[in-house]
Design a binder for these strands. Structure first.
Length: 366
DNA sequence: GACACGTGGCC
DNA sequence: TGGCCAAGTGT
């Protein structure tokens, strides 16, 4: 068992040859590092890279992002989830443009003050983009250091997290925070994984207390998770005169400012087709009828498991040549009647995007 | 402190 | 399959 003083040198040496070739690691441009860190919140790196490359091509610098309409930013974010990240990213870009002359601030407190940036992200950008000696403790670091230092308190709770933070600071090699922070996270992602950690390949196994004690599986101490609630939801694609009705969700709450097909929860004992007619009337004041069932889509969430019953709807008695009616919106801020080919230009929640993908095969029914 | 906030991959 | 989890933040 080696002394913990060897931890950082061993870690940095490992990182020098095992770091993944992530695109923002080429020159550590602050804008790129910032975007990558926001995208990486609660999201695995492998899923980030494609979104990152498309985002940087679409919004190459802070000025381009600050000038972009929010709909375009949400479209670039479509499918990534946690859409407040995209809204805050745009809001922060506009603040940087207005208050920092378009240059991303280097100071930790100035970074931390931007919307969408908390303690972790401020530390990550300050160190990775600017070389500041700040820690960046994410779920990987919590896990790695809980094992290395045998932290016996739940690391997702304040007391345990504070202990990890203190250890992370004490082990930080001055001047090397950029690589130290990334190396900790890289080790957690590639070697010191939640399940099946590869201790044989671990560069700091000789320093790891949990490994030494044979209790790697007991570290970190986990917090109890919440139950997952099953949820039945109905949604309707109203297709009339060759156009489809969509609405833009309210700014706050889930999928804020994204577009959707109207719908809502199926009440206890209610049939899905009755639910969609009721929900559609409540949200738009349209009196619709079900023309066909399109799909049943299952979609997982952190705390819900949704079964989405999807219907094709019509306005009974509506003459094809007559103008399309205007809704009375109660659950949305705006609506459109769009051509099927135009759906690709709007940002939809993933469940509705899945439905759209199937729609192309279904509209011939008419 | 607790909860809302998405999504897909893994076993 | 279904539960767990991820480069967290805002309220």
């Amino acid at each position: 068992m080696r002394d913990v003083a060897d931890f950082a040198p061993l870690l940095l040496h490992w990182f020098s040859s095992h770091a993944r070739a992530l695109p923002w690691r080429r020159d550590y441009d602050p804008y790129a590092v910032w975007v990558s860190e926001i995208m990486a919140q609660q999201t695995q790196m492998d899923r980030v890279v494609d979104y990152f490359n498309r985002f940087m091509a679409r919004f190459p610098d802070i000025g381009a992002l600050a000038a972009a309409p929010e709909d375009a930013v949400l479209k670039a974010w479509e499918g990534l989830g946690y859409y407040s990240r995209a809204r805050n990213l745009l809001a922060a870009a506009r603040i940087v443009q207005a208050e920092h002359g378009g240059r991303f601030p280097a100071d930790f407190d100035a970074i931390r003050a931007l919307p969408g940036i908390g303690d972790y992200t401020a530390g990550a950008v300050a160190s990775i983009a600017f070389g500041a000696d700040t820690v960046a403790v994410d779920a990987n670091v919590l896990r790695v250091l809980a094992r290395v230092c045998d932290i016996d308190a739940p690391v997702k709770e304040p007391a345990g997290k504070a202990r990890v933070l203190a250890v992370a600071r004490s082990l930080l090699p001055p001047g090397r925070a950029r690589d130290y922070n990334q190396a900790l996270m890289e080790l957690g992602a590639l070697v010191c994984r939640p399940k099946n950690p590869d201790c044989q390949a671990c560069p700091v196994a000789d320093v790891c207390q949990a490994r030494h004690l044979g209790i790697v599986a007991d570290r970190p101490v986990l917090t109890k998770t919440r139950d997952i609630t099953p949820l039945l939801v109905a949604t309707g694609v109203l297709f009339q005169a060759g156009r489809i009705f969509i609405q833009k969700r309210l700014p706050a709450g889930a999928w804020g400012n994204l577009w959707e097909f109207p719908g809502g929860r199926i009440e206890d004992g209610e049939m899905p087709d009755a639910a969609i007619v009721r929900e559609f009337a409540e949200e738009t004041a349209f009196a619709t009828e079900v023309a066909a069932k399109l799909a049943v889509i299952r979609h997982g969430y952190t705390t819900f498991r949704v079964t989405l019953h999807c219907f094709l709807l019509r306005l009974p008695g509506h003459a094809e040549a007559a103008p399309l009616p205007a809704p009375v919106l109660t659950a949305a801020q705006e609506s459109r009647w769009v051509l099927p080919g135009e759906l690709s230009g709007f940002a939809f929640p993933a469940g509705h995007r899945k439905l759209i993908d199937q729609l192309a095969n279904s509209l011939w029914i008419l």
